[in-house]
Simulated scan of single mutants.
Amino acid sequence: MHPSDNERAHITDAIQKQQNALAPLRITGSPSEVGQGLVALAELYGMLEDHAASREHYEEAYGFFKTAGNKPGQAQALFGLGVVKAHFEDHKGAIEHMATAALLFNEARDREGEALTRACIGESLRAMGEADGAEEKYQEALILYRQTRNTERMARLLLDIGDLRMAKGEYEPARKRFLEAVPLLEQGEDPDALALGHLLLGEAEGLLGHHDNARPHLLRAVDVYGELHDHVYEARARWDLGLSCYYLQDYAAAREQFEAVLPMYEDLRQHDEVAKVKNVLAHFAARGV
């Protein structure tokens, strides 16, 4: 999500303040202190989506941390460089930086840092089409997050792992991951993740033919996406919900969902989906349901 104009103004102001604080620190501070100041600056540029500037400051920070022999700082800077490379679609370079960062985080016994880094390696592998390697890294990160009891990160990884299984057609293993994720998401404060969890679980149940089980999850996804005004995903959830209602022979409920999703597809200019829904509604009209 791109920062709003108001957010950009706040970030720009924070960058100026950080640059002002960094100037005297370069003279009086230790290499580690300068490195931390540069990492903070790099992170701010990253929030502003100026990834070139972010990379420059991470690289300089890494040099200061190396001079200081500060391995946790080196890990932090290398992780940041990996994130930057991933933004530039250099996933191979991102993985190289992050693999070294993960080892350094491990040496420092920073499980959260190591877990996040391994999860990001998984993201880059996934972007490269290496699904098995991505799942392996997600699993490694999941083990670490279980140890730190970071339920929010656990839930997101469970969704990622389940999504990979769905892509392979392994619906039952995917369903088990989603079933574990949804209660964790219900405890959290991330409505996007919660809606996605219910949507994916509903889709997995539907693909397994468990339409009674699918229906409440898809209805929950519709409600949350409606509150978020995310019409792309609300439309997807409504279409799936309509299908579940149809297979349960609740034709009135199915028709209600298809009639609701039609203007969404029209607004989104998804012409193939519009045609598909119109055909379904014509089928209903011909049968008098």
Rank of each mutant, 00 (worst) to 15 (best):
L184Q: 10
Q74D: 05
L104V: 07
D267R: 13
A253W: 01
I161T: 01
G288S: 14
A221K: 00
R109I: 10
R109F: 07
H198W: 08
E256M: 08
D267Q: 14
A127L: 14
E59V: 07
Q19K: 15
P31F: 05
A167P: 00
A127M: 13
L218Q: 06
K17R: 15
L44C: 04
D272N: 14
E172W: 11
E60N: 09
R175S: 04
G73V: 02
E59S: 10
G169P: 09
S124A: 15
Q76G: 00
D192S: 14
E227T: 12
E60H: 12
A99R: 11
G29W: 08
M98R: 10
Y225G: 00
R111I: 02
A204F: 04
R146Q: 15
D163L: 04
A127H: 13
G46I: 04
I11N: 07
W239P: 00
R177M: 11
Y233W: 15
H91A: 07
A68S: 08
A21V: 06
L196N: 06
Q76N: 13
F178Y: 13
A75N: 04
A174N: 02
H87A: 13
D240C: 13
A237D: 07
K92N: 12
D5K: 14
H217E: 03
A14I: 06
R156K: 13
I27R: 12
E56D: 14
A108S: 15
A108P: 06
V274A: 12
E256S: 12
A221M: 03
D110E: 13
D190R: 11
T117R: 04
S4T: 15
L158D: 01
R175N: 07
A40K: 11
Q257G: 01
A52G: 14
A237I: 08
N150W: 07
V224Y: 00
L25D: 06
R287V: 08
S124F: 05
Q270H: 13
H229F: 10
Q16S: 11
Y247G: 00
A254C: 08
Y45A: 06
K276D: 12
E259N: 10
H87V: 06
A42R: 03
